[in-house]
Design a protein around this nucleic acid. Sequence first.
DNA 1: AATGTAAGTGTAAACATGACACAAACACCG
DNA 2: CGGTGTTTGTGTCATGTTTACACTTACATT
Lengths: 214, 214
Amino acid sequence: MTQTPYTYAPPHPAIATDIVVLALEGSTLGVLLIERGEEPHKGAWALPGGFLRPDETVEACGMRELQEETGIRAEVDLVGVFSDPTRDPRERVVSIAYVACVDHRTTRLRAASDAAAAQWWPATDLPPIAFDHASILAAALAKAADLARHRPLAARLLPESFTLAELQEAQEALTGRRVDKRNFRREVLEAGWVRSTGEMRRGQHRPAEVWRVG
Amino acid sequence: MTQTPYTYAPPHPAIATDIVVLALEGSTLGVLLIERGEEPHKGAWALPGGFLRPDETVEACGMRELQEETGIRAEVDLVGVFSDPTRDPRERVVSIAYVACVDHRTTRLRAASDAAAAQWWPATDLPPIAFDHASILAAALAKAADLARHRPLAARLLPESFTLAELQEAQEALTGRRVDKRNFRREVLEAGWVRSTGEMRRGQHRPAEVWRVG
DNA sequence: AATGTAAGTGTAAACATGACACAAACACCG
DNA sequence: CGGTGTTTGTGTCATGTTTACACTTACATT
């Protein structure tokens, strides 16, 4: 961008973001996908996403798309840049992929106008995927699993307050690794990821302490 | 890119890559910068980079730019996406930043046509930087330090074969952390990052075993 | 009151990390 | 040719971190 003579300007590709929205489906991970109502890949399922607008950063575009699709304002984490020249048969589109973890109970899914449906799919049992979105998805799952080891990403899959058992279940879903209950609690508390609310969650059995991100 | 009606197409920004090329300057890190010969930021120093071409991926663009500037073919690692709408006053440019580690002894620097000079600068003592390239540089240095903890990135700063002392010096320059000689050797060998060549490097003092990435 | 189920807690072994000092090999010099 | 200077190369112990593991508590239900 700096040393190239400014007079040389190849045709500009479109820039879009694709968002891998993760949520808990019971005790496993779910991914938000959108059924395509038009060719190409009509009937296949694609990641939500959209084109970059003139006045926003790419990351803001990702957050806006997330908001438009789910009604949720949340952070997004960069997954990668997908730019194979043939990845979209219509025109060249360079896609920046982000991953977001949300609480699916607070989502309000809105199918966009060219989409037939928006729906959660289990991350381990996916329908036919459009474009190169299967690669994007795989990269996003790996990225999320990696981030979750160093940051309390799992808490974003839950409501504001939660029990440690719920947080552990979310963590296990994200990382794909089962962990010991006592070790998990020690790690979470020592890392200062959560603080107690002082409240107790009453259920069928012994009440559980309620926490929030700290 | 998928649910947005295809009829909506905002003006496409330009897409460019900027490359943070790192090399060893003695025992500290050096960064390749290019002095701008034109406005804006004439006289300031900028990262090498250039526009995406129609037939290449963004990563390939980064590798091509690296090759054009240094004559070296090497891997590049994604640093981030820099897309503030005002980051380039001429027109909107979304930049994908990569970092590359090279052996500066094998580079053949070529200043591009609109650049006054291409030169190595110590990463800790930089000249005035053009555009938002100071942020890009900072992010790249952090990324490289992080990657170097998990992968033999330091070896890319060296020729094909090297002594463990050289590798350690490169590692310390990359991560900014001094490490113990014996611990470093243990870590490198147990991780299988290097294998012996069987040769010895003769110098002023006791000869050193020569290794290569393995 | 008895039963079932999830919450909550401590400790010991294995492993990884960080700190530490000295002998060996060569070049150089007198 | 022996002494000096400088870099290579090596092992162990203390500390911190990670993993593995079992029982009691509290409540709801019957």
